[in-house]
Design a protein around this nucleic acid. Sequence first.
RNA 1: AGGCGCGUAGCUCAGUGGUAGAGCACUUCCUUGACACGGAAGGGGUCGGCAGUUCAAUCCUGCCCGCGCCUACCA
Length: 871
Amino acid sequence: MAELPKTYEPSAIESRWYAEWMARGYFHADASAPKAPFAIVIPPPNVTGSLHMGHALGQTIEDIFTRWRRMAAYNAMWLPGTDHAGIATQMVVERELKAKEGKSRHDLGRVEFEKRIWDWRGRMGDRILDQLKTLGCSLDWQRTTFTMDPPYSAAVIEAFVRLHEEGLIYRAKRLINWCPSCRTALSDLEVDYDEGVQGELYEFAYPLADGSGEIVVATTRPETMLGDTAVAVHPDDPRHQSKIGKTLEHPFVDRDIPVIADAILVDPKFGTGAVKVTPAHDLNDFETGQRHKLPMISIFDEAGIVNAEGGEFAGLDRFKARKAVKARLKELRLERGSKLHLHAVGHCQRCETVVEPMLSTQWFVKMEPLAKPAIEAVEQGKTKFVPESWSKTFFHWMYNIRDWCISRQLWWGHRIPVWYCSKCKEMTVARATPNFCGHCGAGGDALAQDEDVLDTWFSSWLWPFATLGWPNETRELKTFYPTTVLDTGYDILFFWVARMMMAGLHFMKKVPFRTVYLHTMVTDDKGEKMSKVKGNTIDPVDVIQQHGADALRFALAWLTTPAAQGKNIKFSISNVEDARRFANKIWNSARFVQMNLEGYDADRFADQVADGPDRAELDLPERWILSRVQRAAEEVDTALEEYRISDAAQAAYHFVWNELCDWYIELAKTGLQRAAPGTEARLKIQGALVTALETAMRLLHPFMPFITEEIWQQLPKGSGAPQSIMITLYPVRDVRFYDDASESSMALVQKVIVAIRAIRGEKNIPGPARITVLLAVTDDYKKTILEGYKQIIAEQGRCSEVRVRRSGASFSGEFSLDNTAMLMAGDVEVMVPLDGLVDADAERDKLHKELGKVKTDCDYLTKKLSNAKFV
RNA sequence: AGGCGCGUAGCUCAGUGGUAGAGCACUUCCUUGACACGGAAGGGGUCGGCAGUUCAAUCCUGCCCGCGCCUACCA
């Protein structure tokens, strides 16, 4: 066996093992395997994506769960894939097209542009999946799915057609969120609101047509007055009551505007108490327009440019039009004032353009009937949220759910399966391109497919079952649906999780997952969101190269506490460095074990301990560490079951570092010195070392798959051992090795040793000096224990002699206790006679010197501080 | 506006109705054959504030202060 290098070098090991695991097919789960299923579907990253810390966190968590359950003999399946990410991908390719060829997608046309995106995907796509491999993710690659794969697309179309047949999808002209830059409709969720933008509340007057005066309105968007079709006042407002029913003159367009009374829209305390009503460009105004049957006049085209309805302002962009309208109002002496006003402005989630509410014909999903079963399922505990508090957020959104605008004016995505007949103007909804109109029978030439595609989330909400073959009744669905746990960031609770709940219950009649584990967001160490613009990103790919995937994974696991609302993981590279130190510690503990294995026989040791430590006649340190490793196993396993990932990681860390390394290896060193090669005593120590380390490697494997495999492979194993740590059994408590008596004995011994070391430290007893230690105990039981393990105490405390007495019994006659240091170890008095150990004069000199130096420093600093100029 | 959550060591965060914890940082000492990416020993906290319940409150209750997140609205 080659000796391990002194420092752990992850890069040498990681890629080798990943390839090996792949080759041996360990990642694949057979849907027919007679084992309890455990399934996770990956939140599919965008095909445009590159691995960022958020992915690294999620995938680490998912891999921990998957490897852990796989080792616990579950049929563990973790399904990979990517999302076509409509807007995001289209934007990336359009940008590239512009940069390289100076062309827009319209220059290419739809067919050619779609081809370019597929080309792009061929070149760049799935890079993120390769990056997941470097992270060590044990994904079932044979099941990799892309949301635009033909079978998946068929599932998307199937879902659309079924919902349409059921009357849950409809087409309507409604006020929707429009991005003038992306030139597409957006759902409510895709609009982000910047809180507290400083804006202007601008006031201007509409003259009454009869010349009897004017009404002053207040608005943050003066340009929309071009589309005003009413001015509303509160019916009870004495200032305006007389004007209700009168007509106003529009200064720029040939249109008379009624003054209407509306108690819902108007808050008489705000602004001037009169509200201009633009039904085509504001949601509240739209609803007001419906109540009062007002005309709805769209004044912008799809790029946000004023159209012909805007008269003299036609052709101006929204924001230029605002200035122009204000300027003209001023000229006409209709401007009445202006105030600063804090308000929120909606931006496109993708391109940050200010969203324009527009009147538009779009496709919608009726959500209320879908939401109801999902709410019930969570209420009944069919799906549980971890942390539980998120279910409240879920309920709140679900109870107030609004219809979902699913059509997008994009070219990249699943095209809406609806055809319009040029003859009879009816539409046909079909799973495949129809040959004739379903209404008038006109031939295929008369039919034109809807130009729009579906919202990306309309495909991802089918992910947990469409990836498993739906709508076919597959073996995969039978085995792996419902999936066991869904892990994702809480930011897509509504976008994705809630919608999957609805789709799963609707199409599969079962919840899509039993547990939703919501993890936090990763930010930089100051709590700022990582972004390329800010330059505060930490690239997981770089981190892996520098410190290894294991270190990154362990750092993330360590930080993964339940996702309390409003909290995030403040991540810094020092977290990874800490984890790397841990990896190095593990590595060196393995080196120690390996250096002391001469003559070890794994099978013989296994035989000896087959019936537990009593029959094997193990000594205290061995009994202790074998008991402690069971406690650690129980702690880690329980923590994982309860989704306490950080607790699990910390329990394993604590065991390895503070028990195995700090104590047991130290005990084993002297134990091995005492036990001659080839003896039973030596075999027992070697066995305990190997067992504790091997168990720790299995415990840690889900967190740090590479280093644990590497070390595990090098450890001696009994005959018939599996070929890889990946397919060993996860440690669960083995009560045969629980040994309360040994643990409490050892705890006492440890306390005494710590006290002795403390005395040595305090009294500056030189390291090599052997000291005499006197222990006074309160009862015979403790006396027996300490007598029994005197040798260990002496070795660890560097004592030449350890004597134990009942307290009260005098040591007089044996030692002069005049010059003795004493410390309590629990209720044990630990005494160290200092005569001859500490040279009192030398000690005094040393202290004097120190005092002198401190005084000098103090004087110097006092002087410095009393210098006014310095301060 | 409504909802959720947070405030504990210098920093990042666990935690509990009964003597307050971890990692990092800090101080002192130590190159001993696993590891200086290490070891040993330490220092450091009125558990945001005030009041209440209790034999006992960091934990429960109320109010206040500070911070974060979400949803809706904002002419």
